[in-house]
Amino acid sequence: MLEVMSPFQYSKCCSQVKAHGVIFHHRDIHGDLKNMPQEQRPWFQKWVWWNGESPANTNRIPASYRLDSDIKVPYGSLVEVTSEDKIFELPKKDKLVCWVVSNWNPNYKRVQVFNELSRHIKVEAYGRHFSRYLDNEDYSKTLSSCKFYLAFENSIYKDYATEKLFNAMKLGAVPVVLGPSRDNYEQFIPRDSFIHVDDFSSTEELAKKLSFLDQNNEEYMRYFNWRENFKVQGWWFGLEHACRSCDYIRRNKGYTTFHNLNKWFWG
Results as ranks from 00 to 15, higher is better:
Gly21Ala: 15
Asp159Leu: 01
Lys170Asp: 12
Ser131Cys: 09
Leu239His: 11
Lys95Arg: 15
Tyr157Val: 09
Leu143Cys: 01
Ser102Tyr: 07
Ser11Met: 10
Thr142Leu: 11
Thr162Asn: 06
Asn154Val: 09
Ser77Val: 09
Gln187Ala: 14
Asn115Trp: 07
Ser201Glu: 11
Asn217Pro: 10
Asn105Asp: 11
Cys243Lys: 12
Arg110Pro: 07
Trp47Glu: 03
Leu117Gly: 00
Gly267Ala: 11
Val232Thr: 03
Arg244Leu: 07
Lys72Cys: 11
Asn136Lys: 15
Tyr248Lys: 08
Lys164Glu: 02
Thr82Val: 06
Ser140His: 09
Thr162Asp: 10
Lys231Phe: 11
Glu39Val: 03
Tyr220Gln: 07
Arg251Pro: 03
Tyr108Ile: 09
Ser83Arg: 08
Lys231Ile: 08
Gly31His: 08
Glu137Cys: 13
Ala161Ile: 05
Asn225Gln: 14
Pro74Met: 03
Val48Phe: 08
Asn103Pro: 07
Val111Phe: 01
Glu163Ile: 01
Val17Cys: 15
Ser144His: 00
Tyr10Met: 10
Lys86Gly: 13
Ile29Asn: 00
Trp47Arg: 01
Asp68Gln: 04
Thr82Cys: 04
Leu178Glu: 07
Ala168Gly: 10
Phe212Asp: 13
Ser145Glu: 07
Asn229Trp: 14
His259Arg: 13
Lys147Gly: 02
Asp70Ile: 05
Arg182Met: 03
Arg119Glu: 12
Glu137His: 07
Phe230Glu: 00
Tyr108Cys: 01
Gly31Tyr: 08
Cys14Ala: 15
Lys93Asp: 13
Ile61Ser: 00
Glu204Val: 10
Gln187Tyr: 07
Glu84Phe: 11
Val101Arg: 02
Ser145Phe: 01
Tyr133Ile: 13
Arg128Met: 11
Lys122Val: 12
Leu213Asn: 08
Phe230Gly: 06
Lys92Ser: 15
Ser211Met: 12
Glu219Gly: 05
Phe8Tyr: 14
Trp104Gln: 02
Met1Gln: 15
Gly127Trp: 03
Glu39Met: 10
Cys246Gln: 10
Lys208Asp: 10
Ser69Pro: 05
Thr82Ala: 03
Tyr126His: 10
Cys98Met: 04
Ser118Trp: 07
Asp68Val: 04
Tyr10Pro: 05
Asp68Thr: 04
Glu39Cys: 12
Gly127Tyr: 06
Tyr160Met: 08
Leu178His: 08
Phe230Ala: 05
Gly172Pro: 03
Asp199Pro: 03
Asp198Ala: 13
Cys13Lys: 14
Gln215Trp: 02
Cys98Asn: 10
Pro55Trp: 04
Ser69Asp: 06
Gly238Met: 00
Arg60Trp: 09
Glu228Thr: 14
Asp198Val: 07
Val197Arg: 04
Lys12Arg: 13
Tyr65Glu: 06
Gln112Glu: 10
Lys18Gln: 15
Gly172Met: 02
Leu2Trp: 13
Tyr160Asn: 05
Glu84Gly: 05
Asp183Lys: 11
Asn260His: 09
Lys141Ser: 12
Asn252Gln: 14
Ser145Gly: 09
Ser181Pro: 04
Thr256Asn: 15
Ala125Leu: 06
